[in-house]
Structures are given as C-alpha cells and as structure tokens.
Amino acid sequence: MMDILNTLALLGNYLIVPGITYGCQLALGALGITLIYGILRFSNFAHGETMAFGTMTVILLTWAMQSVGISLGPLPTALLALPFGIAATVLLLLITDRYVYKFYRQQRSTPVIYLIASIGVMFLYNGLIRFVIGPDDRQFNDGTRFIMKAREFKEMTGLREGLAIKSSQGITLIVTILLVIALFWFLNRTRAGKSMRAYSDNEDLALLSGIDPDRVVMIAWILTAALATIAGTLYGLDKSFKPFTYLQILLPIFAAAIVGGLGSPVGAIAGGFVIAFSEVAVTFAYRKVFGYMGYEVDGLMQLLSTDYKFAVSFAILVIVLLVKPTGLFSGKSY
C-alpha cells in the first residue's frame, strides 16, 4: 500500500505537477498561434519572440517596481507588472501589423509571404530583445518559492517520496484557468468575440455581414499580445528568462497548435497538454517506479534523455500529420 502511495507521490512530483504547469504554458502559447492563424491565416513564427518581448517588459517593470519598494508580498511582483507588459506588447504588435502585415493584407498575399515576413519580424524582435536586456539568464521571481515543500509533504504523510509544488506552478495553473475562462467568455458571449469567430470561419460572409476586418485583426493582435506576455512570463517565472529558450519553445507550441487543429482554441489547449505530458512522460526516468513495484532494475529506465525532449513534440507532430492533418479538433489543414 505504502509502495503505491509512494509511486503516486513520485509520479505526482515529477510527472503530473510539471506536466500540468508546462501544459498550461504551451496551451497559452498555442492559443496565440491559433488565434493569429484563424484570423490572419498564417503561422506566426515571431510568436516565440513576442513571448520573450512581453516577458522582457515585465522583467524591466518588475525591477523598476522593486527598486522603489513595491511588492506583492508572497506573490511575485511580476504579476503586478503584467498588465503594463501586456500594454507594451499590444503596442509592439499593433505597430508591427501596421507597418508589416497590413500591406500584405491589402495585397491579398499568400500565407507563405506572411510567414516569411513573420520570420523577418522574429529577427527584428530577437535583436531588439538582446539589445535591451542582453542574451543572459535573468531571474525575476521574488515571491515565496514553494506552496508545499517536499519535506513538509513527507512529514505530513509519512511517505518516503516528497511532493513539492512551487508557487510559480500554482500561479501558472490559476492564471491559465482564469485566462482561458475569460478568453472563451469573450469568444462565445460577446459580439466582438463572435465576430472574430465568424471572420475565422468564413471571411467573405463576415465581410458581407458588415464585420469590420481591421477591427477583427486588431482584436486578434491584442489578444495574442496578452496571451503571449502571460505565457512568456509564467514560463519565465517557472524556469528563468533566457531569450534563446523562447526560440526553442516555438516548436512545441506549433506542435500543440497543430495537434489540436490550427484555428481551434479548444484544440490549442488540448494540444498543449498532449505535448507537455508526452514530453514529460517520455523523458521521465522510471527506475524508482519499477523499484516500488518490486522490480530492481539497472539503468534509469528512461525512454529518451531530456536532451531530446524536442523530438517528442516532433514525433507527435509527425504522427498527427500522417494520421489526421486537421488535428484533434478539426482545424484547417488546407
């Protein structure tokens, strides 16, 4: 019995808690990708850097607030800086749209041209971020570190395995839930949200119905800025902020969006968790689990070393492309 509980605690600590946290971060990132895809119909390669930019502004504001003594007590100051970071990112994206994408909209360019333009934008943001804050690792989480420490859990339950929950993990989950509820309320209950879905569904008919495309595009960028900034900040609070990682996270985010079905918000969330849990489960060393089940084994019993975690997103992506290119929630594959 103890062994089963210990196994559960072990899996909870190394699989479920990190999986949920990572899944939330990917889901928020993938939502940004899928929204832009639904409205502007291209895969936005600059999204990772948008996340990095949002996080950077949050970090700078956090530092400013810290220097004048503003803090949220046990919560990270970054949460207070978040709205301002979002505002800055909104501004950046709207300026980008005005000077880059709008032109191609008027030209009715093919998606591939948008895609290349987004690569140029990615470069630009990338340089901007390194120019302002540099390429180094930044810690900016100043709140309490843990909701529950492994030691406390052990004392409380008498188990051998500890279950730790970091504050950043708790914050990630709560913020994600709130944000997703707000987003779906917006998309399903408000006129502006419905007009976005209509535009994503059938652009020509939306135009006929008197929906203003410029407004829809603007709202899409604003939502994307908010999602990207929050996703990036949560990721940065949980791990640390390093500009380079935001380029690497692009692959799992894209994989999540495609697995769920490009253009489908529900799909993006589901895809985020599919990717996150697969990645964590495949790179987890199962040796101790086997131990608790009564088999002593040599080796880590790990399917894939963590160095190859990107291979997991990629493998899932390939399977989806082979089996169901429209994704789990039937997005657009054409």
């Binding site: 291209f42 895969s43 390669f45 998606p111 591939v112 895609l115 690497q248 692009l250 692959l251 894209f254 994989a255 495609i258 490009l262 160095d307 190859y308 990107f310 291979a311 997103s313 990629f314 992506l317 390939v318 492309l321 082979l322 290119p325 657009k332 594959s333 054409y334």
Partner: peptide
C-alpha cells in the same frame, strides 16, 4: 511526411527536424 499538406506544415516540420539534428 509533410509535403502535400499546407505550406506551413513543411516549415514547421523542417524547424523540428533541425532542432533534433542539433540535439543529436
């Protein structure tokens, strides 16, 4: 795997394979 689908998919698949090659 990725040709014959929309152009974005090839872009994302190639992005993926390049990350994996480097990791390897």
């Amino acid at each position: 795997v990725s040709l014959g689908l929309r152009s974005d998919y090839l872009a994302i698949a190639t992005l993926g394979i390049s990350e994996i090659v480097i990791a390897m």
